[in-house]
Design a protein around this nucleic acid. Structure first.
Lengths: 190, 190
DNA sequence: ACAGAGTGGAACATCACTGTTCCGTTTTCG
DNA sequence: CGAAAACGGAACAGTGATGTTCCACTCTGT
């Protein structure tokens, strides 16, 4: 689907499309009702050009949505959540998701922006995480008093907090991630 | 300041004012750029009436802001953060803040809504929490590897997560709070 | 150099939200 | 009860974002 020849794009088009999507995530993660002019400016692109790529605001949103879905799926895949001890896999997952950066904020902060049908259906990464937690409980390495859904909540909440911490408090991202990992591990360990 | 005779209000006025503020928090916490008409409808009040209490949108925001500041200060005070073992005090603080409900989401999710000067200056509850963490470190009951600022981040992030968890997953608020408390305690304990 | 893709700016109509005014109705309270 | 307070609805102009069109400019590859 990604390489659908029907929508194949030249190098330049793909590049500006990326610039727009990245800028949109960056801007909207801080100011969810920013005007399209602000997004265009942040992307270093004319407002007209943006409308060529995303005719309506809704199109931009679904563009962001699909992009985030791909990035989350790729991150999940890369972390190999089914491999090795559950706590180690959880660490890998946390690190992989942390790399989503501002996309984290947008995903958690403004879920109502994404009315995409794909967003509800595509819960595979979610299910992978739940399976991981179940495995940890079977292993006896994850606190059985915490429900898998709550552990999932904790993971995303701490990621959110860590990213904000790095963003606002001037703490290097690496340090924020380290604090996040340590906290998560302690919180969910049996 | 709360009972400033200059802005003393009749019973009815105070009551509708409360209804508007509560509705505004409820609506804006889910949809930060909701129209004033939506807020008025949620408050069961005409748009005209709302403009009588809060002439401009900015006035409504500062109204919410001041209300939240008061509630946070009151909650902090009620939790007596300077009393007893640090971890127990942290528990009390967490419970007290959880009662802020949707105000939590608004505070964490849309801090940019509040351009109030009072918001930056009034960091007393923040400072109380930081002192509490320092005390716990001195006691040896709080993990010295976690910076006080990060512990603060964790508290708010977990509160956010717990509230969302209760809201979206249908988990009773009491259970969500219990999970939150257990998780927080494990995460920050030495 | 040249054709064509890609781009930016200006101008425009449209639309939703906003803030305001006016007036009739309902509620509160002395 | 009757006056004052409080309210709701309708109507209106102003404003900023949006989506669209048109034209001129700048790259890119051959």
């Amino acid at each position: 689907m990604v390489d659908d020849p029907a929508i194949a794009e030249s190098g330049t088009r793909a590049r500006t499309r990326r610039a727009i999507l990245d800028a949109a995530v960056r801007v909207l993660s801080q100011h969810s009702n920013a005007s399209l002019a602000e997004v265009a400016a942040a992307a270093g692109v004319g407002r007209t050009t943006m409308h060529r790529y995303f005719p309506e605001r809704a199109d931009l949103l679904t563009g962001i949505s699909n992009d985030l879905l791909e990035r989350i799926a790729a991150a999940t895949d890369r972390a190999q959540p089914e491999t090795g001890p559950a706590l180690a896999a959880l660490d890998r997952l946390c690190q992989a998701y942390f790399a989503l950066g501002d996309g984290l904020l947008l995903t958690l902060n403004e879920p109502h922006l994404f009315t995409d049908p794909a967003w509800q259906a595509e819960a595979e990464p979610d299910r992978a995480l739940l399976r991981l937690v179940e495995r940890g409980r079977a292993e006896g390495t994850i606190d059985p008093e915490l429900t898998p859904e709550w552990v999932q909540s904790v993971l995303w909440s701490l990621l959110y907090g860590a990213w904000m911490h790095a963003r606002d408090s001037g703490v290097p991202e690496h340090d924020a991630l380290a604090l996040c990992l340590r906290t998560l591990r302690k919180a969910v360990a049996a």
